[in-house]
C-alpha cells in the first residue's frame, strides 16, 4: 500500500500530469480501473497499480457554465476507454456544441504559478481529418479536408497514423489550437444533432432547444425553441426520435448493478 508519508495519490497523479500523461490506477485484485487515485481501492483492495491512459474517451455528460462577465465554459464528464470516468473540459470548440457520445482525446492544460497542469480534452480527429463520434464524420470538416497544423502532418497522429502519446509534451505545441482550424470558427453554424445523420438521436440534447442560426446567446428570446417545434410547450413528440418508442424499456432504464436489488 502507498506510503502516505512519502507521496500522496494526488501527488503521483500530478507528477504524471507534469510529464503530459493522464494516470489512473488498476486494482490488481479484481482488475478494475480506479479513478480518482487512492490508497485503497473501492471494495477494499490495497494492491493498486498505476497505469497511463491512452487518453481516448467519450463524452458522457456535458454542461456549459455561464459565469458572469466570462465566456461560456464547458464542463463535461468523460468516459476514458480504459473504463474510468472523470470530470474535465472539452476545448477547441464552441462549448455549446459538445455532444454526448463525442470522441475526445486528452491533452494537458499547462500549469502556472497558481494552478498545476491538468488534463483537458479536444475533439478526436480521425485519420481522414473528421472528428469522430458515434457515426460518421463532421459535416464541416469533411468539406475542408484534413485540418491544418503548424508543422507537417496531423498534430495528434504520427505519420504512421497512430496517435502520439500524451498531450502535454511536444505534440501540444504543434497543435494549431482553436484559432487555427478553419471549421472551428463557425460558431452557431454547426447543424446540431437533429440535423446530422451520423449522430445518434436518442434525445434532442441540446439541439431541440437551440436553433443553429441563433448563435450562443442564452437570453435570446427565441433561443430555446427550435422552429420546428412550433409554439406549443407540450408538444409530446418534439424531442423524441421516432425509433425510440415509449422509452420505458430503454436499456438504460434498468438498474445500475452497483445499486443492488431494488428495495434491498
Amino acid at each position: 500500500m502507498q506510503d502516505l508519508k512519502k507521496n500522496s495519490p494526488f501527488g503521483i497523479y500530478l507528477e504524471h500530469c507534469r510529464k503530459g500523461k493522464l494516470a489512473y490506477q488498476v486494482c490488481a485484485d479484481d482488475g478494475k480501473p480506479v479513478f480518482f487515485p487512492r490508497v485503497v481501492a473501492p471494495g477494499g483492495g490495497t494492491n493498486l497499480e498505476w497505469r497511463l491512459s491512452k487518453g481516448l474517451g467519450t463524452v458522457h455528460a456535458t454542461t456549459v457554465v455561464h459565469y458572469r462577465n466570462e465566456p461560456p465554459l464547458n464542463v463535461a464528464l468523460i468516459d476514458l476507454d480504459e473504463g474510468f470516468r472523470m470530470m474535465s473540459r472539452v476545448e477547441d470548440m464552441d462549448p455549446m456544441q459538445v455532444r454526448i457520445g463525442m470522441r475526445v482525446k486528452v491533452r494537458m492544460h499547462p500549469g502556472d504559478e497558481k494552478q498545476p497542469p491538468y488534463p483537458v480534452f479536444t475533439p478526436l480527429l480521425s485519420e481522414e481529418g473528421s472528428p469522430r463520434s458515434g457515426g460518421g464524420g463532421h459535416p464541416l470538416l469533411s468539406e475542408e479536408g484534413s485540418p491544418r497544423s503548424g508543422g507537417g502532418g496531423h498534430p495528434l497522429l504520427t505519420e504512421e497514423g497512430s496517435p502520439r502519446s500524451g498531450g502535454g509534451g511536444e505534440g501540444a505545441q504543434d497543435h494549431p489550437g482553436p484559432s487555427g482550424h478553419p471549421s472551428l470558427k463557425k460558431e452557431g453554424s454547426y447543424p446540431g444533432p437533429s440535423g446530422h445523420p451520423s449522430l445518434k438521436k436518442e434525445g434532442s440534447y441540446p439541439g431541440a432547444s437551440r436553433h443553429p442560426s441563433l448563435g450562443s446567446g442564452a437570453n435570446h428570446p427565441g433561443a430555446s425553441r427550435h422552429p420546428s417545434l412550433g409554439s406549443g410547450a407540450n408538444h409530446p413528440g418534439a424531442s423524441r426520435h421516432p425509433s425510440l418508442g415509449s422509452g420505458a424499456n430503454h436499456p438504460g432504464a434498468s438498474r445500475h448493478p452497483s445499486l443492488g436489488r431494488r428495495g434491498g
Partner: peptide, 9 residues
C-alpha cells in the same frame, strides 16, 4: 435528455 429525450420544456 440524451437517454430519454427529456426536454428543457
Amino acid at each position: 435528455m440524451h437517454q430519454y429525450g427529456t426536454t428543457r420544456e
